[in-house]
Design a protein around this nucleic acid. Structure first.
Ligand code: NAD
Ligand code: NAD
Lengths: 233, 233
DNA sequence: GTGCCTTTGTGAAGGCATGCACAAAGTCGG
DNA sequence: CCGACTTTGTGCATGCCTTCACAAAGGCAC
């Protein structure tokens, strides 16, 4: 597997100012912690009590030195000669990622993609709870999906404030995304996951992460073409 | 000092061999080209003939020096004092990304997500054509989605070879992903887009890109927690 | 043709991430 | 309690990416 991490994965809007309280975990590390967590959960399910950096790194698909350096940013949680206690490390990473608390998520735009996301089980698994589904289309409003009733987009601000939504997923068409984005920020949300193929413009302090299928395919196409051209790689 | 071969000297040998045809575009640049392309298409729709690096960078949400350096890897396509010709640049980037040719894509796993992907219009827009939908569930096989009939996963190898599929999207449950992955690679595919939350293990020469909603949410949660903790960012 | 103005393309510097290699730390059998 | 063995945590070197800053290039008005 080409282990290329593309920098877009680390791009966010806010800047970090070094501070005493700031253990300053690098973005690249933060992006990998969920991966380690997933591998650890797999080990925990199989009842493995401890794991070495070598084994855990293999399970997560990274270099073991990188794994150790990543974990060293959280603290010194390993035992030399033994490895890491699986349960303890799960707890520490979860805490660092903020997964020991419950996050209320709202999905705006309940079309093909929004429905798939709402029905996605892996969502709830780690402290994320879908607290609202909103759509602008009266035809869609009232539909029941995954135990929730779709509400009208007009209720956006109300839903966010009443239910303490802190993360919003935008799955509307591109044309509506910026408008929805502006509204949720106005309502106090500072974390957005955007599926619409547009660059959202947001003020400082707001984090936007994007998922763009089309971009991923284009990157694959680039490399595929390279291989076909017989360029030495 | 040992007389062992120094790692760097070794790396020099296996390193990309400079070639006339090898313009060696950095990965970070490749990842941004689709972004520029999208911004350019927006400009083209509005009939804009030329654009400066400053304006295009703003539209794509990047630093203008970065944009210029990125574009300089493709060649010298700008005109000083004027900017870039929109149509010409669209063509050059498309060519570089391999979008001037048609790519046949197969989607394996036609559940919630697979259906959403199949129905997604933005897919076809840029040279990507869905050439097959496959699922292991007999209940799903035969369904018609977006003009295609879902075929049985047993047909995987046949479909890939007959229809010249070169990119496979995996949207099966995590438990089936590695197995599907192994099969498509065996059938000759070297580009995979994986939505299942597992680290796929693949031989050299195969590109895997992954989209993982859960990871994105966890990264957002990390930063959200930081903000709540009152850490200056 | 000349001179001014705009904008590109890139050299250079700094920052960040990666991965090697190893001393230090801890385990465990006896 | 010891000595062999395992594995962590990290210093360090290297290379990639980003950003600044500016000389060179080209357009345009006259
Ligand atoms: N379907 C996919 O696989 C896929 C993949 C990648 C990206 N995307 C992107 O995700 C977005 C959603 O895709 P989709 O296939 O679900 O589209 P869709 O058209 O099926 O659904 C969009 C939904 O958003 C609702 N909507 C429109 N304007 C709204 C507004 N202002 N407020 C609230 N809701 C509004 C519509 O009523 C509709 O229900 C699109 O931007 C698409 O480009 C989709
Ligand atoms: N739905 C989402 O929003 C979402 C988001 C992120 C990730 N994912 C991941 O994407 C994958 C698909 O999610 P989903 O919600 O569509 O699940 P799903 O259960 O609705 O669909 C999975 C489909 O794969 C088929 N399948 C199972 N084994 C197969 C095999 N060996 N060969 C071919 N087909 C097989 C099943 O029959 C089913 O139709 C899962 O791994 C999920 O974790 C989903």
């Amino acid at each position: 597997m080409s282990n290329r991490l593309h920098p877009l994965e680390f791009r966010h809007v806010t800047r970090r100012i070094p501070q005493a309280r700031d253990r300053g975990i690098p973005d690249a590390t933060v992006a990998r912690l969920p991966l380690y967590l997933r591998a650890l959960n797999g080990l925990a399910e199989r009842g493995t009590p401890t794991v070495s950096s070598e084994d855990l790194a293999a399970a997560a698909g990274v270099n073991s030195a990188k794994l150790r350096k990543d974990l060293s940013h959280l603290g010194s949680y390993g035992t030399r000669g033994v490895g890491y206690d699986v349960q303890y490390l799960i707890y520490q990473i979860s805490r660092e990622l903020g997964l020991t608390q419950d996050w209320a998520v709202a999905i705006v735009g309940v079309g093909n993609l929004g429905r798939a996301l709402a029905n996605y089980g892996g969502f709830v698994s780690r402290g994320f709870r879908i607290a609202g589904l909103l759509d602008g289309d009266p035809q869609v409003v009232g539909d029941r999906i995954a135990g929730l009733t779709v509400e009208h987009a007009d209720e956006l601000e109300t839903v966010i404030k009443r239910r303490g939504v802190s993360i919003v997923v935008i799955a509307t068409p591109a044309s509506a995304a910026q408008q929805v984005c502006d509204r949720v920020i106005e309502a106090g949300v500072t974390s957005i996951l955007n599926f619409a193929p547009v660059v959202l413009s947001v003020p400082d302090g707001v984090d936007v992460r994007k998922v763009d299928l089309s971009i991923e395919l284009q990157i694959l196409a680039f490399h595929e073409q390279r291989k076909a051209d017989g360029v030495v790689m």
